[in-house]
């Protein structure tokens, strides 16, 4: 955990990732970074800035556009004793290299009977910022459905740094999904967790974060959904609706306990998920809470997610289907009115 005496500064999400990579690569020479435009350009979102100059081309490798092979190369590197961080520029592109991700990276620890660790991170960017159907998805539930991978999606700036360090130090494979909105957001605009310690620290993977305490309703979300929900919660608070917001941080492992403890108090559950609705995170959360608390534990259940449609290009259409501050606020008011 963070040393409380460390000096804190406000930085933004992409700086936090770059700083974490820099510190972990300093700390452990086995850490290598590879991907498209991670070197000379410092990453299309700036998350790998300054690393090429500091560590050189063998540890910070600009690859050709060959995702299947350089992802498999990461698998081989991990088996050879390195700790690769493979960047796949957009999460949508993981389809190109899914074979190596779910058949090799995720399964080798199991297939080897626990003999082969897989200390590998796939860092990628997801989320909606107007990039339409092929550059906007989140897909975390897709990877959570496939066994053998931890799936992490940070929300606060602080967690961008701490969770990345945890992912790199883990012996297990991690899909690390950054949100483009959070990578581009200015530090001063964050509602939560933009104060970040300067030195290296680890935020444990698998422990949810209660970012706002409340008594009326439990709102479970992650990634950019946390900032959107904080905005919405501030609005409805004026009308006396007191929302508790839980940032899951990771969906594998899933911290059901923190969610269930909150729901046991509030009796009302809203899941806000920027991923697709069906067969996804929202249903999983609801079922796990019911399994833990019993089928009668919830007075209200609501799911707010992308309704099983490719992401459209036009802003008017995107806003109609993707959860944002306004739609979350609307959902909260509807729930309050119906209760």
């Amino acid at each position: 955990m963070a040393d409380v005496n460390q000096s804190m500064r406000r930085i933004n999400g992409s700086q936090a990732i770059a700083e974490s990579l820099m510190q972990e690569m300093e700390r452990d020479e086995r850490v290598v970074l590879l991907g498209e435009d991670v070197g000379r350009s410092g990453g299309v979102f700036g998350t790998t800035r300054d690393l090429f100059d500091r560590f050189g081309p063998m540890r910070v490798r600009d690859t050709p556009i060959a995702e299947m092979s350089f992802t498999g190369m990461g698998v081989g590197m991990a088996m050879a004793g390195l700790r690769p961080v493979v960047e796949i520029m957009f999460v949508d592109f993981l389809g190109v290299c899914l074979e190596q991700i779910y058949n090799a990276m995720a399964k080798i620890p199991y297939m080897s009977g626990g003999r082969v660790p897989m200390p590998m991170v796939i860092k990628t960017a997801g989320g909606n910022i107007g990039s339409a159907a092929q550059h906007s998805q989140c897909l975390w539930a897709t990877f959570a459905h496939l066994p053998g991978m931890h799936v992490v999606a940070p929300a606060t700036v602080r967690d961008h740094k701490g969770l990345m360090a945890a992912a790199i130090r883990s012996e297990n494979p991690v899909i690390f999904i950054e949100h483009k909105e959070l990578l581009l957001k200015k530090s001063k605009d964050f509602l939560s967790g933009a104060e970040v310690p300067e030195g290296a620290f680890v935020t444990p993977i698998g422990k949810a974060n209660i970012v706002r305490g409340g008594s009326d309703l439990t709102l479970v979300t992650l990634s950019a959904g946390v900032e959107y929900s904080l905005e919405a919660a501030a609005e409805v608070a004026r009308d006396g609706i007191d929302v508790e917001i839980i940032d899951l941080r990771s969906i594998v492992p899933l911290d059901v306990e923190t969610v269930a403890n909150s729901v046991a108090r509030t009796g009302r559950l809203l899941v806000v998920d920027e991923d697709y609705l069906s067969f996804g995170l929202s249903a999983e959360i609801v079922v796990r809470v019911l399994e833990r608390l019993g089928p009668g534990a919830l007075r209200q259940i609501q799911r707010h997610a992308v309704p099983d449609v490719p992401i459209p290009a036009a802003l008017s259409l995107e806003q109609a289907i993707v959860p944002g501050p306004a739609s979350i606020e609307r959902t909260l008011r509807e729930m309050a009115a119906a209760s």
Partner: peptide
């Protein structure tokens, strides 16, 4: 079959062996 002590592994997916071997080769060079 995986034998990390002997740096041996295999894959059941056609076309998936060379990328992993490339990773070993990269690690040796590094």
């Amino acid at each position: 079959p995986f034998d990390p002590d002997r740096h041996f592994s295999a894959t059941g997916i056609v076309g998936a062996s060379l990328p992993v071997a490339l990773g070993y080769a990269y690690a040796f060079k590094l």
